[in-house]
């Protein structure tokens, strides 16, 4: 149950609350460059979502199996050269950036070849975007987020598993698609507007992006509310394990929760 809540929250957070484009500013280049027409935006979004999932799988696997201290493969290899205890502390995270960027660019290459060979129709619709994706920050950003949640945690028990990592990547990609499609829809209409000459093109797109970001800010805090709503009442009670807070000064949603406990 807790796992499910975690997954839902990671998904929601990546897709809308902390949208990759509008909150973390990754993938701005295609957001401005490829958002002229809706069909192009959809193609780009699909390509990114596809590649980001593959890259996330690769980077999670490599980070857990090779890079972090005590990872099975690196400590196995190091075991031939040094003592077992020393081998378990081999820390290769300094190589992580290089490893990620290479896994991204090679997966882009393979995806391109595969799609061109076996799905020519699909390749026609979004194949042209594939080479551009290597330098899309959104993908490296997803890898880095996964890394910080695998290698950067204090207790190994808090480290993300593959399911969480893939959820982040997939929904991050969906969030990117969402942002870029909304933007392209607006831009198609914007072409008919009387925009002051110096603002035509990127400038007005950025200002509109700002207003979009403002709209997406409205989602902030949804995740903590959702977590509260999804956690069964007895678990809330267990988690609080101190007496429930007095009801007088609590906002409505929490009051409901506590009523739930007392019932």
């Amino acid at each position: 149950m807790n796992y499910l809540i975690d997954i839902v929250l990671i998904a929601l957070s990546a897709a809308v609350i902390n949208n990759f484009v509008l909150y973390y500013f990754v993938g701005i280049c295609p957001f401005i460059g490829v958002s002229r027409r809706v069909d192009m935006a959809v193609g780009m979004g699909c390509a990114v979502t596809f590649v980001i999932s593959i890259a996330a799988f690769l980077s999670w696997t490599i980070t857990t199996m090779v890079l972090i201290p005590g990872a099975p493969i690196s400590s196995f290899i190091a075991g031939f050269f040094v003592s077992k205890e020393a081998a378990a502390t081999v820390d290769l995270t300094v190589l992580s950036y290089i490893v990620y960027i290479f896994s991204i660019s090679s997966s882009v290459q393979f995806v391109e070849m595969y799609v061109r060979k076996f799905f020519p129709a699909l390749y026609k619709s979004f194949g042209v975007f594939l080479p551009l994706i290597t330098t899309n920050c959104a993908i490296l950003f997803a890898c880095l987020t996964i890394m910080s949640n695998v290698a950067g945690v204090e207790n190994p028990a808090d480290a993300w598993d593959l399911g969480r990592s893939l959820t982040l990547a997939l929904f991050g990609g969906i969030g990117f698609t969402l942002a870029i499609v909304i933007m392209s829809g607006i831009r198609e209409d914007l072409d008919l507007c009387d925009v002051p000459e110096p603002f035509k093109g990127a400038a007005i797109t950025l200002v509109v992006g700002g207003i979009l970001a403002l709209a997406f800010m409205g989602f902030t805090g949804v995740d903590s509310g959702l977590r509260k709503a999804m956690t069964p009442a007895e678990e809330v009670a267990m988690e609080m394990s101190v007496e429930p807070i007095q009801t007088a000064m609590i906002e409505p949603n929490l009051q409901q929760q506590i009523r739930g406990i007392n019932d």
Binding site: M1, N2, E154, N155, A157, E235, M238, E239, S241
Partner: peptide, 15 residues
């Protein structure tokens, strides 16, 4: 020290 606190299905870790 690392302390594990068990709370029903979840285990919470504190430093």
């Amino acid at each position: 020290n690392t302390v594990a606190v068990e709370k029903g299905p979840v285990t919470k870790y504190y430093t």
